[in-house]
Simulated assay, not measured.
Amino acid sequence: MNKSQLLAAIITALESIHQNAKAAAKRAHDTATDDENIAENKYDTLALEAAYLAQGQSVRVAQCAADVQNFKQLDSAINCSKVTVGALVSIIDEQGNQKTLFMGPSAGGLKVTLNGQEVVVITPSSPIGKELNQRQVGDEVSLTLGGKPIVYEVLALS
Rank of each mutant, 00 (worst) to 15 (best):
A13P: 01
V68A: 10
A47G: 07
L74V: 04
T144A: 08
Q63G: 11
A87Y: 05
K26L: 10
L157G: 04
I78H: 04
D93T: 09
N37P: 03
K111W: 03
Q19G: 10
G96P: 03
V89D: 07
V151I: 12
Q98T: 13
N70D: 15
Q134F: 09
V141C: 10
A65T: 14
K99R: 12
E131V: 10
V154W: 03
L145F: 07
F71L: 07
I10L: 02
L143R: 07
T100P: 00
V85E: 11
L145I: 14
K26F: 03
A50Y: 01
Q63K: 15
E140H: 15
V151E: 02
V89I: 15
S81I: 07
V154D: 02
C80Y: 10
V112P: 05
P124W: 05
C64K: 14
V89R: 07
N133H: 14
N2A: 06
S16Y: 13
L6C: 05
L7V: 05
V59Q: 13
T31A: 06
N97V: 10
N79I: 13
P127M: 09
G146L: 05
P127F: 07
G129R: 08
Q73L: 14
E153F: 00
V120I: 13
E36V: 03
L145E: 06
G108Q: 10
E15V: 06
A21Q: 12
G104F: 09
E140P: 06
Q63T: 14
T84P: 00
E49L: 13
L14K: 04
R60P: 05
N115K: 09
T33Y: 00
L14Q: 06
I92W: 02
T100A: 01
A25N: 01
I150R: 02
N41L: 12
T12M: 03
Q55C: 06
D44N: 12
A156L: 08
V120R: 11
I17C: 03
I122W: 03
D34H: 07
V121F: 04
L53K: 13
I10S: 00
S158R: 11
V141K: 04
G147N: 01
K130N: 09
N20E: 15
A77C: 01
K42Y: 13
N133A: 13
E118G: 07
F102P: 01
L157A: 04
K26W: 00
Y152H: 08
Q63H: 13
V61W: 14
Q63E: 15
V137M: 10
L48I: 09
A9G: 01
G104Y: 05
V85K: 02
L132N: 06
L145N: 06
V85F: 08
V141Q: 04
E36I: 05
G146D: 07
L132H: 08
A39G: 12
T144I: 14
V120Y: 04
L101S: 01
I92H: 02
